[in-house]
Amino acid sequence: MADKKLQIALYWGAGCGGCDVAVLDTNEFILDVAALADIRLWPIAVDGKYKDVEHMQDGELDLTLYNGAVRNSENEEIAKLLRQKSKIMVAFGSCAHMGGIPGLANLCKKEEIFKTAYLDNPSIESRNQVVPYPQTKVEVGELEIPTFYKRVYKLDAIVPVDYYVPGCPPAPHQIKTVLLAVVGGKLPPRGSVVGASDRAVCDECQRKKNEKKVSKFYRPWQIIQDFDTCLMEQGILCAGSATRGGCGVRCPNTGQGCRGCYGPMPNVKDQGAKLLSAVSSVIDSKDPKEIERILAGIPDFVSMAYRFGLPASMLQRSFQQ
């Protein structure tokens, strides 16, 4: 491989773009990247057209780092295109991995989203009655924009994915790991999560852990926390126990509970359900009413449990009528 430069593409699907920025967070390593690889597509940084990609041969790309979820037809089209052209498809960042924050949109219907974004949004013109339509007839003909899907998909719901790099965003060292692995040809088994630990965040967390009994839940700002003790024991929801480690315990170290961006543990099918189970297990009451009262301290558990993984969960979305 040394004789041939690595052909890579980076794509930004439905996401905040933070992952793209995170690539830049590798600092000077990006130069090594440039030396090692030809970046064939990177909409945020490099000029390149989808047409160019279409003209590539199948498998011409060595690696695609796809960040963001699949929200509309464009995301899907490009995902499929890149999959076709790439030897290795990497779901890069939480959104591609599990749907990410955009995935929380699955709690709402498309119409509700449109209503919020285009009709009720205070920042838009108040009389606006227009919501996007895929096809719009104008005098010159038909205009077309990507179709907004009913819900958000994680990348591997659309195309087969070879590796997953979790994180919102992935830490720079993970990016390095992936690229070096590809370059070095030392690829882990397909389907692996790369650059993360096999143990939960707690493993790296330096806070002291005891047996847990919680009789009240707090938001982090509601109490003065003890930085040496496990957040969960203090009643602050922390997804750390249900989330892969490898991030460097970024959130708990700042006093926030882990938000779960690294996704579920290897054996876990539904991260939110596991967190649910763990959280409810530590409640210290046998009285149904008391339990309800304690649980009332968690205002929006579903968004907490599935903050990054709703489209990757068992139910994938809300079924509100």
Binding site: N210, E211, K212, M232, G240, S241, G245
Partner: peptide, 23 residues
């Protein structure tokens, strides 16, 4: 317990009625 997966979060310890889960 698969110790390769256990992170020592200690959610389980208190749950065992027989104190069979040891930390």
């Amino acid at each position: 317990v698969d110790e390769d997966l256990c992170s020592g979060c200690r959610v389980c310890n208190e749950l065992c009625p027989y104190t069979a889960v040891e930390y």
